[in-house]
Amino acid sequence: MTAFVLWGLLLTAALGFWRVIVGPTIPDRIVAADTLATILTTFIALLAVYFENAVFLDIALAFAVLSFADVLIMAKYFEHGELHR
């Protein structure tokens, strides 16, 4: 059952990647990338269940922190066109 959910999440992420490629404007791509980041965080957390190894949870936590910082920096950069303000 876990394998089914894992494959489903992977296919969902692939579907979301369509918006990253096509997205008419840059913020569309940022939104899609944010969506993908959250989906992949849950995907990594589920890998911990699938392999019965708690190390993946640490990876998921680090990935969540990094993707949050990522989106904030992208949004800030997009707002001003430069970072120092």
Binding site: P27, I30, V31, D34, T38, T41, A45, L57, A60, L61, A64, V65, F68, V71, L72, A75, K76, F78, E79
Partner: peptide
């Protein structure tokens, strides 16, 4: 796992505010 959930719950709205405002 609950820590990851709390973190996502706290940061998802913040990221969306940042994107919408930008």
């Amino acid at each position: 796992t609950l820590l990851i959930a709390a973190f996502l719950l706290a940061t998802n709205p913040l990221a969306s505010h940042a994107i919408a405002r930008a």
